[in-house]
């Protein structure tokens, strides 16, 4: 591990009011890898994920301590603009959440809000993003149609395309396949595998097999603590911590 880490968190504590949601998390993520965050519901893995694009800022009464760095820069420093950070760190949510706009405008949204309005540029970028998200062939004839006409799996790939359109370097995925059927899920997983070459991906998942299939590294969270963080293979075959062992073997959680 000689490379500089893409993402690094040092002793991060997070409180919702009096509730201590993340307890001293220290972890670093290498570029162009997929890191899976696993753990039972309420263990803080989604909260931890939302730390990296500062989505937690929206919640009133939240308090964050510690140091979170992306590309060696403190993303919680006062001089950093949140919207600039979010352009670099894309996010895909648990449920497909397209805008009530056309398929084209959904993907173009990120470009437009960033002032990139040149027609041919937008068209080109929309096509590239949809191709990257393996959706282009299915929607190329109905770009003007409402995004709500797509199936759930297509909507989720549309949301991925939307996140890719602004060319982030990090992609955060919060249980991106939890609302989808097995076929759509496997498409998303293939996609994650392909996107790895260009992006650093952190994915929260409840699905052990999924974590095993797509990720290089896996972090196990429990009650706000990072219990174990290692190569996915190690976590699933030879975990060091007994709690990790019982979770990945399905004895609790």
């Amino acid at each position: 591990m000689t490379m500089n880490p893409k993402i690094e968190s040092k002793n991060v504590n997070l409180y919702y009011g009096a509730f201590h949601a993340l307890k001293g998390i220290t972890m670093s993520v290498q570029p162009n890898t997929v890191t899976a965050l696993i753990g039972p519901s309420g263990c803080g893995k989604s909260t931890y994920l939302r730390l990296f694009n500062r989505m937690n800022d929206l919640i009133p009464g939240i308090r964050i301590e510690g140091d979170v760095q992306i590309d060696g820069k403190d993303i919680y420093s006062k001089s950093l603009r949140v919207d600039e950070l979010r352009k670099k760190v894309g996010m895909v949510f648990q449920k497909p959440n397209p805008f009530p706009k056309s398929i084209f405008e959904n993907v173009a949204y990120g470009l437009r809000v960033n002032g990139l309005n040149h027609a041919s540029f937008v068209e080109e970028r929309v096509e590239t993003s949809l191709r990257q998200a393996a959706l282009w062939e299915e929607v190329k004839d109905k770009l003007k149609k409402s995004a709500f006409e797509l199936s759930g799996g297509q909507q989720q790939r549309l949301c991925i395309a939307r996140a890719l359109a602004i060319e982030p370097s990090v992609l955060l995925m919060d249980e991106p396949a939890s609302a989808l059927d097995p076929i759509s899920t496997s498409k998303i997983e293939e996609l994650i595998y392909e996107l790895k070459s260009k992006y650093t991906i952190i994915i929260v998942t409840h699905n052990m097999q999924q974590a095993g299939r797509v990720s290089d590294k896996t972090a196990f969270f429990y009650l706000g603590e990072l219990i174990e963080f290692d190569d996915t293979q190690v976590i699933f075959t030879n975990p060091q911590n007994p709690r990790t062992q019982s979770y990945v073997t399905g004895r609790f959680g």
Partner: peptide, 20 residues
Amino acid sequence: SMKEASLALGANKWQTIARV
């Protein structure tokens, strides 16, 4: 979720209000 989607794409508060 819709507001978050917009903010996550780097839109600021006012862009989110006006466009979404």
